[in-house]
Simulated scan of single mutants.
Amino acid sequence: MRPIYINGRFLTQPMSGVQRYAYEIVKALDERAGAANAGQEWMLLAPPGAPAPKLRAIGFKTIGTRAGHLWDQTSFAHASRGGVALSLAMSGPLFHPRHLVILHDAAAFRRPEHFSRAYGAFHRMAERILSRTARIGTVSQFSRRELAAVLGLDAQAILVAGNGADHAGTAFDESALDRHGLRGEKFFLTLGNLTRNKNLAVAARALGRLRPGAAKLVAVGSVNAGVFGAAAPPAAAANVIFPGRLPDAEVAGLMRAATAFIFPSLYEGFGVPPLEAMANGCPVLSSNAEAMREVCGDAVDYFSPTDDARLAHLMREAVADAGAWRARRIDAGRARVKLYSWRNSARVIAEACLDLAAAAPARGPLPAKDACARS
Rank of each mutant, 00 (worst) to 15 (best):
H99I: 12
Y119T: 09
I102K: 08
A126R: 05
L100D: 05
E127V: 00
A134Q: 10
H104D: 07
R135T: 05
D105P: 03
T138N: 13
F115E: 00
H104L: 03
I136M: 03
S116F: 01
H104E: 05
E127C: 05
A107M: 07
L103N: 11
E113R: 10
A107E: 00
R135N: 11
H104P: 02
A106F: 03
R132V: 05
I136W: 01
R117A: 15
E113V: 00
D105E: 07
R124P: 02
A121E: 10
L103Y: 07
R132F: 02
A106Y: 05
A134N: 08
R111E: 00
H114V: 02
A108Q: 08
Y119C: 01
A134K: 09
A107P: 00
F122N: 09
A126H: 06
I129R: 10
R124D: 01
F115V: 01
A106Q: 08
H114S: 06
F115C: 01
A107S: 15
R128S: 13
H99K: 09
P112N: 01
Y119P: 00
T138L: 13
R128T: 14
R135M: 04
S131P: 12
T138G: 14
R132N: 10
H99F: 09
M125N: 06
A118C: 06
A106S: 13
F109D: 02
I102R: 03
L130K: 09
G120Q: 13
H123C: 00
A118G: 11
E127L: 00
R135L: 09
A121H: 11
L100K: 07
R124N: 07
H99W: 11
A118K: 15
A108H: 15
A134H: 05
A121D: 07
I129T: 14
F115G: 01
I136T: 04
A108E: 11
R117P: 09
P112Q: 00
S131D: 07
R135D: 03
A118E: 14
S131W: 04
R117G: 10
F109W: 11
T133I: 13
A134V: 10
A134T: 07
R128V: 05
V139D: 14
P112F: 00
H104G: 04
H123W: 10
G137Y: 01
P112M: 00
R117N: 08
R128N: 08
R124K: 11
A126T: 04
M125T: 12
H114R: 03
R132D: 04
A118T: 14
D105W: 02
V139M: 12
A106W: 03
A108F: 14
Y119E: 06
A106K: 04
L103R: 08
R110E: 14
E113C: 00
P112D: 00
I129L: 12
I129N: 05
E113K: 05
F115Q: 00
V101N: 08
R128I: 02
H114G: 04
G137C: 04
R117K: 14
L103W: 04
I102W: 03
V101Q: 13
H99R: 12
